[in-house]
Design a protein around this nucleic acid. Structure first.
Lengths: 191, 191
DNA sequence: TCCGGAATCTAGACAATGACTAGATTGGCG
DNA sequence: CGCCAATCTAGTCATTGTCTAGATTCCGGA
């Protein structure tokens, strides 16, 4: 029964935190509550994450890794820009807690080296996926196009999570709605 | 000196909160700190806002009012969809604290009647500004187009505030960059 | 002008939290 | 087998949000 060591406290705390953040947002999160849920003393989690900000940093890092995996897709395919946006949206809705924390730098250690590394890896993937652009847009337009898709996907996912969009949706899959929007925006029609 | 009554404590607390949120985000905000800055006792602000969540609710309401004013523009003009997006971005960057709080429903009383009223007013303006659409898109596409511009503007503003975009910008005005992006997305070129 | 209720503010208290410290327990590696 | 580092406990402290009771001031009606 209840050995002195937990086994994998780090992951247990992470998972509990992700669940709570997914339901109620990162605001009401409490280290001590997480400790209680894991059945350990109130200060135990701090040994794994140093800080509350440290815990959220770990979540942000994991989020970047998961996002990178989502964007990359199955090995050896090269999605177009719109599909990349769809994957971005899918990730945001499938991992709401990660997504939410990632874009709240005021909550974690924005300059932690592990975080910078993970972010750089994600950016690389985004850039790589840029290979095939719609219409001949070259030069500075490439960055603009990337920024446009990123903005569209990020905004759509954020608004969706905030219940600002649901009434438009009906019962359609959010990813499909985004596909429609992206088509409308970048190809001049719902193609 | 220092009369028992402050004069306009409500506004003073709001302004201090807006400044702090704009600089450090809403995370580290403290009622007692706001009270100290205003030179009143620690519980005084609560009499004006009831809660910490109440304070943030007030900020969200004010944010919706300011956003509505921004979108409406000078009396009697009817901006097209892209210009509406530009105004949305301008608001987000000019009033970062309001914008940040507005889209964090976990921080305030999401069903406060004043909030619902203010939001409804803003939505009305967004819908009204939809009058002139680019290309003949009618029927359900109207909502999609509106959602597209909203997503694009919202995502762009959010990413900009998070320092995710600054390196692309150079020294250009964010509103102009957004104009370029929106043109790229909705008219097939940087028109 | 005066007075009484209402608005505004103070002061004190309480539980909860994040962070820190010192020390106990345990696992693993030479 | 022994020892060191990792892991965890227990205690403490300042700070915060919220509640209560009471003090001070403002304002409108007589």
């Amino acid at each position: 029964m209840a050995s002195y060591h937990h086994g994998d406290l780090r992951r247990a705390v992470l998972d509990a935190a992700l669940e709570l953040i997914g339901r109620d947002g990162p605001g009401g999160l409490s280290m001590r509550d997480l400790a209680r849920r894991a059945g350990v003393s109130h200060a135990a989690p701090a040994h794994h994450f140093k800080d509350k900000a440290g815990l959220l940093t770990a979540i942000a890092v994991e989020g970047h890794e998961l996002l990178a995996a989502s964007l990359a897709g199955p090995p050896g395919d090269s999605p177009d820009l719109r599909e990349l946006g769809v994957r971005y949206v899918r990730f945001a809705l499938a991992q709401p807690a990660h997504f939410e924390v990632m874009f709240r730098p005021d909550l974690y250690h924005r300059d932690a080296p592990e975080l910078l590394a993970a972010r750089q890896r994600t950016d690389g993937l985004l850039q790589a996926g840029m290979s095939g652009l719609p219409r001949g847009s070259r030069g500075g337009d490439e960055e603009l196009a990337r920024l446009a898709v990123w903005s569209l996907a990020h905004g759509f996912a954020t608004l969706w999570r905030g219940d600002n969009v649901a009434r438009i949706a009906g019962d359609r899959d959010p990813a499909q709605i985004f596909r429609a929007i992206a088509g409308l925006a970048f190809t001049g029609g719902p193609a």
